[in-house]
């Protein structure tokens, strides 16, 4: 659509089958996993290689459809046996979260950023907020229009805080290690599955929809 308006475009493609169907003018398929199309985080050399390989396609004149494969897989996608999950108690969400807060602070200092913030409320309020949902309430938060959205983005923030804490120290875990720890070992993972069930049983259609689709990835539904 942008090419139609007179500008050269190149797409980085994560799913080759989709690029084959949509046939953009120029596309570079990479084998990087969904969610990190440029490769591994904090690996600028590899990211630059991917980006440069894509940009070079802008100079190709043999269109109208150019689809190339990036030559190598991203490094570091495998599990790291020397990674250790944060050592916090998993008794209940509030206790676990409180113990995880200093670890999360370490992560923020290490990476200079946090992806927490979609839910418009600080972690100190999360446990009470989710308790209200589990008790059948429909609490809302300033900044988001509905209870469904408030809970949907709170779930995103919970996953973000835990994911960042998991990477606070030591070697970078694989994406799978972070996910398996969160969904199989933490009270937060169990909480999100419980919230999903409450949402699915709700008479609030918006909550039912977001709970069924956007709280727990299908492979981690308990």
């Amino acid at each position: 659509m942008i090419e139609d308006r007179g500008f050269s475009t190149v797409a980085i493609a994560s799913v080759r089958a989709q690029a084959e169907k949509t046939r953009p003018p120029r596309a570079l398929w990479t084998s990087a996993m969904l969610g990190r199309p440029l490769g591994e985080p904090n690996d600028p050399a590899f990211q630059r290689q991917v980006l440069m390989a894509a940009l070079r396609l802008l100079e190709r004149a043999d269109g109208p459809v150019v689809l190339e494969d990036f030559e190598s897989d991203p490094p570091g996608a495998s599990d790291r046996p020397d990674w250790r999950a944060p050592n916090v108690p998993h008794d209940d969400f509030a206790t676990e979260l409180a113990a995880l807060m200093p670890v999360w602070e370490q992560a923020k200092a290490r990476f200079g950023r946090t992806s927490v913030g979609l839910g418009f409320q600080p972690p100190e309020r999360w446990a009470a907020f989710t308790d209200a949902f589990l008790a059948g309430g429909l609490p809302t938060v300033s900044g988001l229009d509905t209870a469904a959205l408030a809970l949907r983005f709170l779930c995103d923030d919970i996953k973000a805080l835990y994911g960042e804490a998991a990477q606070a120290v030591g070697p970078a875990p694989s994406a799978g290690q972070v996910d398996r720890w969160f969904w199989h070992e933490t009270a937060a993972g169990k909480l999100l599955n419980a919230l999903r069930l409450v949402a699915l049983a709700s008479e609030n259609n918006a909550l039912k929809t977001v709970g069924g689709r956007f709280f727990v990835p299908a492979i981690y539904v308990a």
Binding site: L34, G35, E40, Q47, L51, D156, K159, A160, G163, A175
Partner: peptide, 23 residues
């Protein structure tokens, strides 16, 4: 929710390569 988040949690360049473009 069916894509990795651990990557951009620590480095947004994996989805938005603005620093790489500047380099």
């Amino acid at each position: 929710i069916n894509f990795d988040r651990a990557g951009f949690q620590t480095d947004v360049n994996v989805v938005y390569p603005i620093d790489r473009l500047r380099e």
